[in-house]
């Protein structure tokens, strides 16, 4: 490591390569070493075995990797794990109740909003945050909210219907 970096670290700005990471994932505290270059998606899938979060494009376009960071939908493929230190992460596994399904998940099932299912966790996380913020979104608000998630199977039609139905039913 160059000496300048050490100096910087000594002055308060962390510049080490293996600081520890303290985060909460789906309600459980995680404390582990994490190099700066570790991407949140990789941390979740590879290190924590939370494989519900999907890797679709790895470049921030498709939305398959969406997770909540402090309740906010976030592209985990473009997030450095170290930069969510002390934050709370919720993945699709965390959106799922211990028993059964959430209203939104049930609506996705009943309305046929899943086909191949690969984009589904991302859509569900996005839609969960939407309904948290706006329990009764209009159709166009739903379309706006999911406009960062790509689905190749459904044409989005049944996804939108499912979110509408879940909103009607309330949570």
């Amino acid at each position: 490591m160059p000496s300048r970096a050490k100096g910087a670290a000594a002055n308060g700005a962390e510049a080490t390569s293996s600081s520890s990471l303290k985060i909460t994932v789906n309600g459980l505290p995680i404390d582990r070493p994490c190099p700066p270059e570790r991407i949140l998606l990789d941390l979740l899938r590879e290190d924590l075995d939370l494989t519900g979060t999907k890797r679709g494009c790895d470049l921030g376009t498709c939305g398959c990797c969406t997770v909540l960071v402090d309740g906010r939908p976030t592209l985990s493929c473009l997030t450095l794990a170290r930069l969510v230190d002390r934050r709370s992460i919720t993945t699709i596994e965390g959106v799922t109740p211990v028993h059964g399904l959430s209203t939104l998940q049930r609506a996705f099932v009943e309305h046929g909003a899943t086909q191949c299912g690969f984009c589904t966790p991302g859509f569900l996380v996005t839609a969960t945050a939407l309904l948290e913020e706006r329990p009764h979104p209009t159709r166009s608000e739903i379309i706006d909210a999911i406009s960062g998630n790509l689905c190749r199977c459904t044409g989005y039609t049944k996804i939108i219907e499912a979110i509408e139905a879940a909103a009607r039913e309330g949570r």
Binding site: R4, A5, E14, P36, L83
Partner: peptide
Amino acid sequence: MHLDPFELSQPTTIEEAVRLRAEHV
């Protein structure tokens, strides 16, 4: 896709950020 290793600095003041950047211009 992974990132190649890099050093990560997380300054807390503007002055510190600018100084760090200047050190590694």
